[in-house]
């Protein structure tokens, strides 16, 4: 399959990918390698996984990482309550300790968490490991075993091998530096804020009801807003919210009503300092340039 075919397929699902990104996705699927996506928040890293799952017509399994994520939440956990009950019941039936032990450490008592679940599907799922840089370094090391071998070792059960290999997407936004070992195991793509044309295409795909002239203004405005010194730059999701807000307010031209525009900035600027810095004058200047 040609890589542009994938790009088109993604576009049909409303995801406009840059050439570099489309190539990375194509190779990740063709070679069966995990894909590491890095970039600022709100540029659509997570969305790729969702779109891929739709294209490949498969399940999306998501593991959200956070500080202190442990094996019990990421890989598997024994169903302790059920184990306790079984032991009590077995004791009354006079079952021997050994056979009870074998029974309660069997797969019936295993609770699957995302990583284990993803390697035991009959059809390759898309496994999204979101914000991997938030998890601890120890977890990253464990992830390496799964990413290279696609097998998980449960001490009481032995090694569980993958039935199908999941399509793995990892995302990171630079909370912490990732290890070289993990980077080397993955294909890499840096997702940046989109170019003007790409972003315009995204807006058209997601909100087809926005008039062409207004769409141009919106993209021009958001793009120049990103050039300002902001604590949190508006991402694509914010841009779409902003467009929806403008549609809802019935604004057809950004320069038409400064007060309403200022109010609708709530969708783009998410910190107090940013709201304070982008004054009515700055906002009007940007809107004027975009028009």
């Amino acid at each position: 399959m040609h890589w542009t075919t994938r790009q088109t397929a993604m576009a049909e699902q409303g995801y406009i990918a840059s050439d570099d990104l489309a190539m990375a996705v194509h190779l990740a699927l063709s070679l069966g390698r995990p894909l590491l996506l890095e970039g600022a928040a709100g540029v659509g890293k997570t969305e790729i996984a969702r779109v891929l799952a739709t294209i490949c017509d498969t399940q999306l399994i998501r593991l959200q990482c956070y500080e202190g994520l442990d094996a019990a939440q990421a890989i598997y956990e024994w169903n302790y309550q059920r184990q306790l009950l079984t032991i009590r019941a077995a004791a009354e039936d006079g079952e021997t300790g050994r056979s009870v032990e074998q029974r309660i450490f069997s797969e019936d008592f295993l609770l699957e968490r995302p990583l284990l679940k993803s390697i035991r599907q009959s059809k390759s799922p898309v496994l999204l490991i979101d914000e991997i840089d938030r998890a601890d370094e120890e977890f990253e090391a464990y992830l390496l075993e799964i990413l290279s071998e696609f097998q998980i070792t449960v001490p009481e059960l032995g090694t569980i091998k993958a039935i199908t290999q999941p399509i793995v997407i990892l995302t990171a936004n630079g909370t912490r530096d990732l290890s070289d070992a993990l980077r080397r195991r993955c294909l890499y793509a840096h997702v940046d804020y989109p170019e003007r044309d790409t972003e315009l295409a995204i807006l058209k795909a997601r909100c087809p009801e926005v008039e062409a002239a207004l769409a141009n203004q919106i993209i021009g405005f958001v793009q120049s807003l990103r050039q300002e010194d902001l604590e949190k730059k508006p991402g694509i999701a914010e841009m779409l919210d902003f467009s929806a807000a403008l549609m809802g307010l019935g604004i057809a031209d950004l320069t038409q009503n400064p007060k309403l525009l200022q109010a609708s900035l709530a969708t783009l600027l998410k910190t107090e300092a940013d709201r304070f810095n982008i004054t009515v004058e700055v906002c009007q200047r940007l809107a004027g340039q975009a028009a």
């Binding site: 890589w3 890095e38 294909l187 890499y188």
Partner: peptide
């Protein structure tokens, strides 16, 4: 096309890109 393919394989960070 080759450039894009090799880029995604060989790089591992924004600095490399």
């Amino acid at each position: 096309e080759t450039r894009r393919a090799l880029k995604t394989v060989c790089t591992g960070g924004a600095e490399d890109i």
